[in-house]
Amino acid sequence: MFNGFLNQIVQGILHGGLYAMFAVGLSLSVGVMRLINIAHGDFIVLASFVLFTLCTALGISPFLAMLIILPPAFVFGYLMQHVLLQKIVGSSNILPMILVTFGLSIIIENGLLIGYGPNPRKLLAGDLQIASLQLGGGVTVGLFPLITFGAAVALIFLLDLFLYRSRIGAKIRAVSDDVDAADLIGLSSKRIYAIAMGIVAMTIAISACFMGIRTNFDPSSGPTQLLTAFEVVVMGGLGSLWGTLFGGIMIGVAQAVGAQIDLAWEVLAGHLLFLLVLVVRPQGLLPKE
């Protein structure tokens, strides 16, 4: 019984890695552009379908497909920011931000429904999906969840390195600090925002690959990913990259514990933990403005 419980906790922690991956892009856009993109989850699902199509059409592995779509994803994010999202950031009126990204979410979801129908899909990664490792104490972990967690840590590490060790990273942090000052000294925030969104789109492509292998997805899965990513970002401390790993693990473990009670409590437990944290400890969880 105890072993079973411990096992669940470990699974929850590993699943948290996937959630952190969902959240890391949202965290970046919140931190840099103060942009809460309601379509974030739908972009993840969209990317999963792109990967699905590539894998079926070319018969390649999802990981290779992911590598192929990384550059186009960056361009897509860059243009998305340049053409559309730039118009809705930087205003104290949040209405356009919410409604435009909400509209995008509906457009993507219904576009996918037209293109692919409502059936759930999955990315196939061969034996990797079923292989598992025996750890001590009766704990068994799937190889793929372990890889996902490792990939999440690596992704956050690389992003952190990029932000704090590269010249573009410094510019992104500068714009995040004081966007008006950046424009005053000739550091074009518009361009930096577009680059940041390009990076966000790359994280979306990466998380789409891992999500697609790990779980089923269908055109209407977007909001679930959004809400999870949102909760992770808020619980992990807004804009904090390593915080997303912490937040992801919190949600993952909560869901694992919830699933012990009743399978239907799995999702509910994550949401309830989020609301509880919000009530008990709102300081430091609120947006800095």
């Binding site: 010249r167 410094a170 942090r173 600090d177 004081d178 008006d180 000052a181 000294i185 000739g186 550091l187």
Partner: peptide, 27 residues
């Protein structure tokens, strides 16, 4: 043309060196 803005407008979370380097980058 470069401006020293009113109120200095440094990037508070960036190091001194990073702030200075930005001047070079944009200049």
């Amino acid at each position: 043309i470069a401006l020293i803005p009113e109120g200095r407008r440094l990037f508070p979370s960036l190091s001194v060196e990073e702030n200075l380097a930005l001047g070079w980058e944009v200049g």
